[in-house]
Design a protein around this nucleic acid. Structure first.
Length: 802
RNA sequence: GCCCGGGUGGCGAAAUCGGUAGACGCAAGGGACUUAAAAUCCCUUGGGGGCAACCCCAUGCAGGUUCGAGUCCUGCCCCGGGCACCA
């Protein structure tokens, strides 16, 4: 064995990272690409802790995909940016006594350094940060497009208020009644808020899901979130003529509705309350209001409520049914009022039992006892609808009641309008000026951006208004329409608005007079492949789809789905447990990259489990990958000194099988098995002592997406003359060579494996059976019995049934 | 409660149009080289039985379909994630 120079990843990686910059290797021609491929990954929030291993895992997987596409001959655009506005940065700045405006640039510097160091194929010409006025100018512009289209509106609303972060939260940011950031129980407050009418797009957002190439889990999450229910609104009238409208998904059970329940906040409660019940009703309402959202929604589920002392007529039966209020009915969903069918709804049953209300069975299902909710039954106690199947009967009942003007078919979504205002500092100011004469007026485009003033005093307070509202010199401005004294909106917008359009900005970052250039957008969008975590399956992805639909409706883009192909990666855990600071098991990538090199670290991350499922990070495992790269390094150096000739047959066959496997696996993000296949190939080369150029060059090409620095280095060593291995083409394989040689055929007797035969491909059934019967191990089990049946699978298996 | 995933060696995991279970890697044990160690190389490694060729058992549990089931069907159990008093 000749001397092989030591593999020094740090040196190799530094050299090539410098060359990539000098040679503009990662900068595609954005104006005239032959085969554009927009490889997008979810941009990170630049935390003070730096890039963590979860980011690194995601970016590595996405980068491998981009590099693979590049080798397939695409012009791959792989940009990177920073989602740097938001409560997280602001809270961190407060906790360490600095200003987010100072903190964020430092954090971004760290991230940029880390992202270069791990070897991402990023086009840094197109880096963006959502906090850059050149970016948020257009975030504000986007708000104005929705405002002008009447898709943004302000309303006083009971909103989620986090007493710790002192801000309003979107429904999506409330987890089990608690703030998703700080876990504080969320309170209800009534404030004026800006909303986007995403509910107007609910049906389209739902329907389009069928056209998307997304993972099933992500699609399911979105469907769930949109939460479509079909049913009807039914009207119950009081003797005084008041109409109480309820929403139900089970109009077939209306004959079983024995009472009504309204949400305690329902506007009709006052009018429906009898004098003698007034005190009790008031007390109950106060009690509910004082509950925090946690105990109302998820904590104590015991049914409570109060009788209002009045009645309404069931439109189907004509019976007078009592009207109650109860906090298990929510004002935000449906009409805030329900018809209670205690026989066929568990919650209603519980309530009726508690308060001794009548229970009337109207559905019969074999073997079921009350209460049950099945729709697979026949109606009973339902007048002329008796005996009808539930679903048909329901339709007929709605038609019957609709003719009397007391029923309307209705579709209900769980999705709420998107509350986008935040009473905080670290975000883009909402570009609105209030004028006593003109009302809310959009800031004219020529005056954008509305700069976020660099106030040192940005601490939020309990007032329910933004810190910007403390600065009269900032918010007092003339009305852009009539020049009368006006006042700026002092709320800033939600971070999810920043991230709802960043993919549109990337190809157009150099244009300061337009948010996204029409030509660039036509060339590069929609995004070819989007890779990111399922934690954004609902919020970010739903908002981005909505914004894109709005832009499409305004004729600003030609597509309505920004991410036709999306792949979600899994989560990475450490030694079987979720990483967290408190557990002390957070993996800091820098230390690993320093010790092992970026190429080894990238490959290890991809080897520890299926990319789309995540995996368990264990320190011990990394040595295997490093050993593999050392072997490749040594074989390549050996190959240089070896005369090239035809590969040994076994090596050639394995090579073609490997190219086949690595190609399909890389294309489908099956990185762990692709790496395993390359390891197998290297093992075969070593067994045959066949480390020649012909054996190694295709391997280096396949390895390039995974270990780009090493591949560049070895490509030059093996005679590559171009500027980069990524200007080469992915190797192709020959199916015939991959399938050459004998196949092993399993011989079963009665389904149990008894022997293996090595035979040429394509042997006939008769030959195989004859050979099988000659085997000792087979004879023994056939034992002279006649073979009753032969199952033969060409080139794989024969099963003799005796 | 509902909706997605997922349960395979000591460990991370392969194999799903039903067709040779455990590829690849880690760890462990044995050996070679070395004054020694590291590194490297070779061998063994799911469980049980046998001197051996071999045999039996084994993919969360219980059934079923099939010549044949990790894979399909029925009913359960457990783990992870999401939604959740949504009418």
């Amino acid at each position: 064995m000749h001397d092989v120079p030591t593999y020094d990843p740090a040196a190799v990686e530094e050299t090539w990272q410098a060359r990539w910059v000098e040679r503009h290797t990662n900068e595609p021609d954005l104006d005239r690409p032959a085969r554009p491929f927009f490889n997008l990954m979810m941009f990170p929030y630049p935390s003070a802790e730096g890039l963590h291993v979860g980011n690194m895992f995601a970016f590595t997987g996405a980068d491998i995909f981009g590099r693979f596409q590049r080798l397939q001959g695409h012009d791959v655009f792989e940009p990177m940016g920073f989602d740097a506005f938001g409560i997280h940065s602001e809270n961190y700045a407060l906790s360490v006594g600095t200003h987010p405006g100072k903190l964020i640039p430092r954090n971004i510097d760290t991230f940029r350094r880390q992202l270069r160091r791990f070897g991402g194929m990023f086009d840094w010409r197109h880096e963006l940060s959502t906090t850059d006025p050149a970016y948020y100018k257009w975030t504000q512009w986007l708000f104005l497009q929705l405002f002008n289209a009447k898709l943004a509106y302000k309303k006083r609303a009971a909103v989620n208020w986090c007493p710790k972060d002192k801000t309003v939260l979107a429904n999506e940011q409330v987890i089990n009644g608690r703030c998703e950031r700080c876990d504080t129980p969320v309170e209800q407050r009534s404030l004026d808020q800006w909303f986007f009418k995403i509910t107007e797009y609910a049906e389209r957002l739902l329907r389009n899901l069928d056209t998307l190439d997304w993972s099933d889990s992500t699609l399911a999450l979105q469907r769930n979130w949109i939460g479509k229910s079909e049913g009807a609104e039914l009207v119950f009238r009081t003797p005084a003529g008041q109409a109480i409208t309820v929403f139900t998904t089970r109009p077939d059970t209306v004959f079983g509705a024995t009472y009504l329940v309204l949400a305690p906040e329902h506007p009709l409660v006052e009018a429906l309350t009898a004098a003698e019940q007034r005190a009790d009703v008031r007390a109950y309402q106060r009690q509910v209001q004082s509950k925090d959202v946690v105990s109302r929604r998820v904590g104590d589920r015991e049914k409570t409520g109060v009788f209002l002392g009045s009645y309404a007529r069931n439109p189907a039966t004509g019976d007078a049914v009592p009207i109650w209020i109860g906090d298990y009915v929510l004002m935000e969903y449906g009409t805030g009022a329900i018809m209670a069918v205690p026989a066929h709804d568990d919650r209603d049953h519980e309530f009726a039992t508690q308060f001794k209300l009548p229970i009337r069975q109207v559905v019969r299902v074999e073997g079921e006892t009350l209460p049950f909710v099945s729709e697979d039954g026949l109606l009973m106690n339902s007048g002329r609808f008796d005996g009808r199947p539930c679903r048909d009967g329901g339709r007929e009942i709605v038609a019957w009641l609709a003719a009397q003007q007391v029923a309307t078919p209705r579709v209900q979504y769980r999705l709420h309008d998107w509350c986008i205002s935040r009473q905080r500092y670290w975000g883009p100011p909402i570009p609105i000026i209030y004028c006593d004469r003109c009302g809310p007026v959009g800031v004219p485009e020529r005056d954008l951006p509305v700069l976020l003033p660099p106030f040192e005093d940005f601490r939020p307070d309990d007032s329910g208004v933004s810190p910007l509202a403390r600065h009269t010199e900032w918010y007092n401005v003339p009305c852009p329409q009539c020049s009368a004294p006006g006042r700026r909106e002092t709320d800033v917008s939600d971070t999810f608005l920043d991230s709802s359009w960043y993919y549109l900005r990337y190809p157009s970052t150099e244009f300061d007079d337009r948010p996204f250039d029409p030509d660039r957008t036509r060339t590069w969008l929609p995004v070819t492949t989007y890779i990111g975590g399922n934690e954004h399956a609902v919020l970010h992805l739903l908002y981005s789809r909505f914004i894109t639909m709005v832009l499409k409706d305004q004729g600003r883009v030609s597509f309505e789905e920004p991410f036709p192909k999306l792949r979600a990666h899994g989560l990475i855990v450490k030694d079987g447990a979720k990483m967290s600071k408190s557990r002390g098991n957070v993996v800091i990538p820098d230390a690993y990259i320093k010790q092992w090199g970026a190429d080894t670290f990238r490959m290890y991350l991809m080897f520890l489990g299926p990319f789309q499922e995540g995996g368990d990070f264990r320190d011990e495992g990394i040595t295997g990958v490093r050993r593999f790269l050392e072997k490749v390094w040594a074989l390549a150096h050996e190959a240089v000194r070896t005369a090239d000739g035809r590969l040994p047959e076994a090596v050639e066959r394995k090579l073609h099988q490997t190219i086949r496997k690595v190609t399909t696996d890389t294309a489908t993000l099956g990185y762990n098995t692709a790496i395993a296949a390359m390891m197998e190939y290297v093992n075969v080369i070593r067994e045959h002592g066949a480390g020649s150029r012909g054996a190694m060059r295709p391997l280096i090409l396949m390895l390039a997406p995974y270990a780009p620095h090493l591949a560049e280095e070895l490509w030059v060593l093996l005679g590559g003359t171009g500027r980069s291995v990524f200007d080469e083409r992915w190797p192709s394989y020959d199916e015939r060579l991959a399938e050459a040689g004998d196949v092993e055929i399993a011989v079963q007797v009665n389904g149990k494996l008894r022997a293996r035969l090595a035979l040429p491909r394509g042997a006939s059934q008769d030959d195989v059976v004859a050979r099988a019967l000659a085997e000792e191990g087979v004879k023994k089990f056939v034992d002279g019995n006649p073979v009753k049946k032969v199952v033969y699978v060409q080139d794989r298996l024969v099963n003799l049934v005796v």
